[in-house]
């Protein structure tokens, strides 16, 4: 199966990717490589298609009625939209964190254990315990919640909830973690913690993050892709995009002329 590629090779590769919602086309011929072991930020004004692109990678768009995808999108060279691809298996490999923290109305422990349970990742209870603890630890939440693992996940603060959702996602041991504006519902302190966490997670996971905040993109990502009206306008190293954009549209956006 797949090997962990050296940093810089394409983990996810899209070529001429079109997405339609019913009559409306949301993405126009996107060519984009997501490199392994990096944080890639997708930026652009709202409705530009960045979230759509993100949701193609783990086929969350399948849940939308009338959504249609054309072009090619591959994960480790395998077509994500191939008929033989199993969505469940794909999502075990490609985890996701959502805009609004959405912990299940269950205990903190059960929230994190849910993924490993359904995928049968743990042979016994102690192994499951270990997965839960490690995941919480990696998400930087263990210290705060270790005494109340049986309390409801919905009782945590917003920032804690979002880190719980991250812990829940990485407990499945995905290769890629998709983050759809993970900090938009959080206050600045919680945001800082999550951003710190994203930076740490980079060691083990390939991360794609959609964000509204250019500062955030600049802080956490190594590469940045700029979308506008369903088209990928420019992609490059984050530093280059923010200091020396090649396209006038990109420049206009990052300097705040529109957005």
């Amino acid at each position: 199966m797949n090997m962990v590629q050296p940093q810089g090779t394409a983990k996810v590769r899209s070529r001429g990717l079109d997405v339609f919602y019913g009559e409306k086309q949301a993405l126009f011929g996107v060519d984009l490589d997501i490199r392994a072991g990096e944080v890639t930020a997708l930026i652009g004004p709202s409705g530009c298609g960045k979230s759509t692109f993100l949701r193609c990678i783990n086929r969350m768009n399948d849940l939308v009625d009338g959504a249609r995808v054309a072009g090619s999108l591959t994960l480790d060279g395998d077509d994500i939209y191939d008929r033989s691809v199993d969505v469940v298996q794909l999502r075990a490999k490609v985890g996701m964190v959502f805009q609004k923290p959405n912990p299940f109305p269950k205990s903190i422990y059960d929230n994190v254990a849910y993924g490993p349970r359904i995928h049968g990742k743990a042979a016994d209870q102690s192994e499951l315990d270990e997965i839960v603890m490690t995941s919480l630890e990696k998400a930087g939440l263990l210290k705060e919640v270790k005494d109340r693992l049986q309390e409801s996940g919905t009782g945590l603060s917003g920032g804690q909830q979002q880190r719980l959702c991250i812990a829940r996602a990485i407990a499945v041991e995905p290769e890629i973690v998709l983050m759809d504006e993970p900090c938009s519902a959080l206050d600045p302190i919680a945001t800082a913690k999550v951003e710190e966490l994203i930076d740490e997670l980079r060691e083990n996971y390939t991360i794609v993050i959609v964000t509204h905040s250019m500062q955030q993109a600049a802080r956490v990502s190594q590469r940045t892709a700029f979308f506008h009206l369903g088209k990928l306008i420019e992609v490059g190293d984050t530093e280059q995009i923010f200091t020396n954009p090649q396209e006038p549209l990109t420049q206009g956006y990052i300097t705040g002329r529109f957005g």
């Binding site: 199966m1 797949n2 962990v4 298996q89 075990a92 490999k93 995928h119 049968g120 990742k121 041991e173 290769e175």
Partner: peptide, 10 residues
Amino acid sequence: TAVRSMDAVA
């Protein structure tokens, strides 16, 4: 571990 884990899922 990653490979083993994905096999378990499958």
